[in-house]
Design a protein around this nucleic acid. Structure first.
Lengths: 230, 230
DNA sequence: GAGTGGTCTAGACCACTCG
DNA sequence: GAGTGGTCTAGACCACTCG
């Protein structure tokens, strides 16, 4: 078992528990190395990940500091599919739903063997006549036998997974701004090159990666909104 | 000068140039270490960053492979200005900082009388040579006399406001995907029409609206990242 | 079994911060 | 000047892949 994950979760717990005060540095790298009885490089590795995840920031010569919650940016709330489906004028169309063999890339994202079975679901969501969101989803088929026989147009896949005994415990997502390529532009009926959001989401059930989804969302019809108290 | 950034950009150039074929591994870490005359750990560090940025993926025992463009995972976190400013290679350039009279639109957003004084700050943020973010900020001048005399390139405006007795108590923000118009595209040195994030933010001090900011963020260089436990 | 990436060590020198 | 993070080295052992 590797050592740095333990150091990382220990430090994360302390940070979330308020053990380290804002404005004051954490123990230095040599100190942490001594505390956890590892080399400094191993302690650094744990801190590297905490920095990447936004829990701390480092200043050369000064120290490593807890990130204040004030500017935890990039946390926009996104409307879950459930609410979307409730809107009567919204509908979801299944373009494709088949079992495929994992390409190396999909295998790497889902951490399965290349060639393993993956359920691929391609959907289009519209409001009234207007297509708004394209969805391409890859699900580890070993976890969800029979998923493709369900009614994928009317049901939330998230809830289907829960019903099939695969509760989601963690979601990682990223949001990019992209120019739509021809395939997507045609589906969304906008000119090629129109700006859109591309949201990528990986879901976990425990340590197991369950699904990987790409959403293309029309930038001219959708905005994310959020408010927070610093 | 550190060695790993050179290795990283060299490999990135090769990857983007199609030097390494999809499905075939890159040279192994020991080979790359020999080629660049560094230790294996230093070569790894360069590859670590390429992996994080989605250019390659690694399979233990098998090798490091180019990621097909389809599943490129973008991995830039939006950084708070404070941390941004500390990064030596990041800089902020003030394009304009003047007092103007509120247009009807700005007046409506800030809930002041049209024609009232507003501090307008236009900045450009870059990393190295690469411009990344355009910022246009409108601040209710009645709340912040003398703001424009401060060093706006090196200081966080958020902290300046706090220092001037205007603590921020609430932020409302929205995020859109837009095609860049000529003015913005020229500043960011990308083609007209390139997809970008447009973030709009209104800040409050109590019930008082303090500022309104538009950020144009290059979509090809930035992504929002988040993870949560449902 | 040869080669690959994953992790770790015990050092080293450097640039930087801070009182 | 003491302490901090940034980078780098030259090893080592391991789990894993693949022919």
């Amino acid at each position: 078992m590797a050592k740095y994950p333990l150091i990382k979760t220990t430090l994360k717990d302390r940070l979330l528990g308020g053990h380290y005060l804002e404005g004051l540095p954490l123990p230095s790298e040599p100190q942490l190395a001594r505390e956890f009885d590892v080399s400094r490089m191993t302690a650094r590795r744990a801190i590297d990940e905490l920095e990447r995840e936004g829990y701390v920031y480092r200043v050369q010569g000064a120290g490593t500091f807890p990130t204040g919650k004030r500017f935890r940016q990039g946390v926009f709330r996104i409307r879950p599919f459930k609410e979307w489906a409730r809107h009567p004028e919204h509908r979801t169309q299944v373009l494709r739903a088949i079992e495929i063999q994992a390409t190396p890339e999909i295998a790497a994202v889902l951490q399965i063997e290349p060639g393993s079975s993956v359920a691929f679901i391609h959907r289009l969501r519209s409001a009234g006549d207007e297509p708004l969101v394209i969805e391409k989803r890859y699900i580890n088929a070993a976890l969800v036998g029979g998923l493709l026989e369900r009614n994928l147009a009317s049901e939330s896949i998230h809830e289907l997974l829960i019903a099939m005994g695969v509760p989601l415990t963690r979601v990682e997502q990223s949001l990019e701004a992209v120019n739509l390529r021809q395939e997507e532009a045609e589906l969304l009926r906008v000119p090629v090159g129109t700006a859109a959001f591309l949201m990528r989401r990986t879901t976990y059930s425990g340590a197991q990666r369950v699904s990987y989804v790409n959403y293309w969302v029309r930038g001219d019809r959708y905005a994310f909104q959020d408010s927070f108290e610093p």
